[in-house]
Design a binder for these strands. Structure first.
Lengths: 250, 250
DNA sequence: TTCTGAAAATTGGTATTACCAGAAGGGCGC
DNA sequence: GCGCCCTTCTGGTAATACCAATTTTCAGAA
């Protein structure tokens, strides 16, 4: 069979193929992979190539090779790789509400005029992004990261950057955020501007309040989108049952 | 030469040896490693073994192998591996002050009676740990993580767990925290108890205040220890100069 | 002299084969 | 039934050969 995707070196293809089989649950955690010689036969490659692929898995911590015994599955790919993978969009936004509020407050005590100028530009760019229906949310990200950077605390910055990046890995988050973002076009600009003004005034409490207010709005939009999607799915399920009933009685 | 540390498979020894050479700057970023055949000669191993070692480096993203050309250094080991490595102890504690305060407030709205009972036990264990001069700070860690868990928010929990774990990777943090902890024995127990009481009362504002108060104390102890160490180093430097002067004039 | 392009050298990619060492299992003797 | 030894299986390493992609070299042409 060899479910490989060419254009790569053989060992990489093989590693991917094995990765797929691991992901599909063919070899659960703790079980042993087939012997190298058997894998070589099955995938029609040489044993050195099989070894290279298995070493690639071993370096990634997916399998553990025991001399004279075999290669045993240590953990499955995808999961438990980076911390905090299966986080829901709600949890993510709630955490940002708490943490970014505090970060904004700290930033208000540490910002420089240059920071304020940079953030001002970003607020403008966010406005432009929001007008474009196909716009990205890159400026939005930069806005939040600029504030985190203004805290002059690397730990704070890293945490916030990480929370933002988690949206990409979260299964639902990206979609839901997209929906949530379109549900509230104009207010978003004003909310960002409010944070900017608080920073310019060096007012920690105002900055915290403005940031929390903004993310509360995001959270509400998220809940709205979630509910909307649940309702749509419920309708779809009902519709399917209705059609099935119609067919059965036809 | 082959600066290998036996007791492992050859390819792992070789990978480590190459890693050392990378760390020592023998092969800067962008340069090419020697050809596989040359490495095999130099380390007195076979080419397949060299290939396995290089693949191990490649999987880790340290080198990039180009067919027909060679293996090029992509980045150096150690640095830029995990995010937020070079965070100072001060930044770390400051971040905890901000984030764990909010986590405690959220936890106060979400805790169950079972959570409170668990945390109560941990407060007791922290007291015991503090009495033992050789005690660890395991209970302390569990206490903070239990509160983070009580938020019922995985993102919040992951962030706080990660900040705590960063202490181990931070160069100075562990030592300084140890010093800081011994500088304030009894108050610590009271501070933890105050957080517990706020949780029991389901009072978010009190929980936030208690946690911030506790971590403020830790932060101050940390600053004290930092200053103390700086002074000690200054004295040591002066002493060294004094001895050198004495020798020179002897 | 400079540019072009093909040949040669170099390099990684893969296959084949062989043998060694550690581990595991089964059969034998006690 | 218990324990020891031997067979067998497994990964670890070596040696070698050949292929394919790349890089270099250099001769020939402009």
């Amino acid at each position: 069979m060899a479910n490989v995707k060419a254009n790569d070196r053989l060992y990489q293809d093989l590693a991917r193929a094995l990765l797929d089989e691991l992901a599909q649950g063919r070899y659960p955690v703790g079980t042993r992979l087939p012997a190298e010689r058997d894998l070589a036969l099955r995938f029609e490659v040489s044993r050195p190539t099989v070894r290279e692929a298995i070493i690639a898995l071993e370096v990634q911590g997916l399998v553990e090779v025991r001399i004279g015994s075999g290669a045993y599955v240590r953990r499955l790919p995808g999961e438990e790789d980076r911390p905090g993978f299966n986080v829901t969009a709600f949890e993510l936004t709630e955490a940002r509400l708490l943490f970014e509020g505090e970060a904004a407050a700290l930033a208000a005590t540490q910002v420089t005029d240059a920071d304020v100028a940079e953030i001002e530009v970003l607020v403008q760019r966010i406005a432009e992004e929001n007008l474009d229906p196909n716009g990205t949310e890159r400026a939005d990200r930069e806005f939040h990261l600029a504030i985190a950077r203004a805290t002059r605390n690397h730990a704070v910055f890293n945490v916030i950057e990480q929370l933002w990046d988690l949206r990409a890995t979260s299964p639902e988050a990206a979609l839901l955020h997209e929906k949530a973002r379109h549900a509230q076009v104009k207010p978003v600009v004003e909310e960002h501007a409010a944070v900017l003004e608080a920073l310019r005034a060096r007012d920690p409490n105002a900055a915290r309040a403005a940031m929390r207010s903004h993310l509360s709005a995001v959270l509400e939009g998220l809940l709205f989108a979630t509910e909307e999607r649940a309702l749509a799915e419920a309708r779809k399920a009902t519709q399917a049952k209705r059609e099935r009933y119609a067919k059965a009685t036809a």
